[in-house]
Nucleic acid binder design. Structure first.
Lengths: 228, 228
DNA sequence: AGTTAATATAAGGGTATCCTAACTATTGGA
DNA sequence: TCCAATAGTTAGGATACCCTTATATTAACT
């Protein structure tokens, strides 16, 4: 019988969220954290202080928050577990994307290294989760990849889908149904007025994607110099 | 992103514990619950009231507690998940018994039916966990099996190990190392004075087991009428 | 029947996490 | 430069669990 408490869980949600938002080492506004976790800014602020006291992040008032080395390590541990479970749920249990994400969100908090490592091995040491997000290594830190949100591309630009930012489950099913998956080749055909929906060619098929959705699709640009 | 809270976890530990203690529909003293969960009787009592208010159990003062139908259903759901995860951790990840139990104790609280059922299917719908405890069905209630603790057998009696009561992880490794596993044939050779350690023949090998340990080994008696 | 041991309840606290409402401090643009 | 919007803090609460230290109740044995 283990303890009844769960100190870690809440803390982990914060760290994970911060890590997800701050893809490029930027400062993360506390407001954004609160939004993503659907809690008040007061509560988020409070917790940010606690996490700072524990040495997991640094808060620059009126600017935002940045994970310390320790904080980042912890956050990557969570992402690692999340993504490994996603692999398992997808490949072995054959569950649909949306469920996979939601279940992984719960499984990620079971954090014994022995379990995570055994799972990793069982899965054959995968490098990416089903949505294309890189799986942090058991130790060491993930190096960044050069990605651009699909929403930042201009008409005519081309690229390959690297990953879907996994922030909620809803979007995953939506995109899965439209063949938006890691590896898909994409080209912007048209952008509607007022920064509106994008018409894109996704692996040859025409799709229309709203801007908000496009922000979650991370692209590796393909320079079409040779085409011109 | 799921909610930050975890109401269920503590509640589940209570239900599971009660279900484990009350194998035969007996009333479970609140004191025992407190002991098993390593909390004060005051806290246990408090929680028992809460669970009663939620209709999960009935408390008869000075007697004990009994799960309601709903409470039992919930408890069996937890045991089901626990034991399915144990199967997975043992068979697929190849982890040792003690770890398996401890990890399953955490995984059991991830309780989506879709996940549990997918896991069940992936494992080939097993009927027993690695320690021989029956896995409750997705719906319906587990019917009891006739078992006797090894500690209740007399010298000369024989039986087959049906299961190890899984209450903590420590004991599992201990017994595993002594070939005490579901299916092992056992015969009591000697009981030391003062209800002391039992000398037993376990699948032909001589082993000595303390009374406390023997209480956790559940036996199906084999009537040796024909032998005599 | 009377006492003791087991059980229950009451009183007073503690921590972690969340909330709203009101107030203050800073930033960044007009 | 000044002010509105943004960010942060203070104050006062709530809930779910957990604790210890009394004090009541009941059960059960002599």
């Amino acid at each position: 019988m283990t303890e009844l408490h769960k100190f870690a869980e809440s803390e982990e949600m914060y760290l994970k969220t911060i890590a997800e938002i701050s893809r490029h080492g930027n400062l993360v506004p506390v407001t954004n954290i609160a939004e993503r976790l659907s809690i008040s800014t007061v509560s988020a602020s409070e917790m940010v202080h606690r996490l700072q006291d524990r040495g997991l992040l640094e808060h620059t008032p009126y600017k935002g928050v940045r994970l310390t080395t320790e904080g980042r390590k912890r956050a990557e541990g969570i992402l690692r577990r999340h993504r490994l479970w996603e692999c398992f749920l997808t490949e072995h249990l054959g569950l649909p994307w949306k469920q996979v994400h939601d279940f992984a969100c719960q499984l990620e908090h079971v954090s014994e290294d022995a379990l995570t490592d055994a799972l990793d091995k069982h899965l054959g040491f995968p490098s990416f989760c089903p949505h294309g997000n890189p799986i942090p290594p058991a130790q060491g830190v993930l190096e960044g990849r050069e990605t651009t949100p699909l929403s930042d591309l201009d008409v005519g630009q081309e690229g390959v889908v690297l990953c879907i930012r996994e922030e909620d489950g809803e979007i995953l099913d939506y995109l899965d149904a439209r063949a938006v998956r890691p590896g898909s080749r994409v080209r912007i055909e048209e952008i509607a007025p007022y920064d509106g929906p994008r018409s894109v060619l996704m692996d040859g098929e025409k799709q229309v994607l709203g801007r908000e959705v496009a922000e979650h699709i991370l692209i590796e640009l393909v320079h079409d110099n040779e085409t011109e």
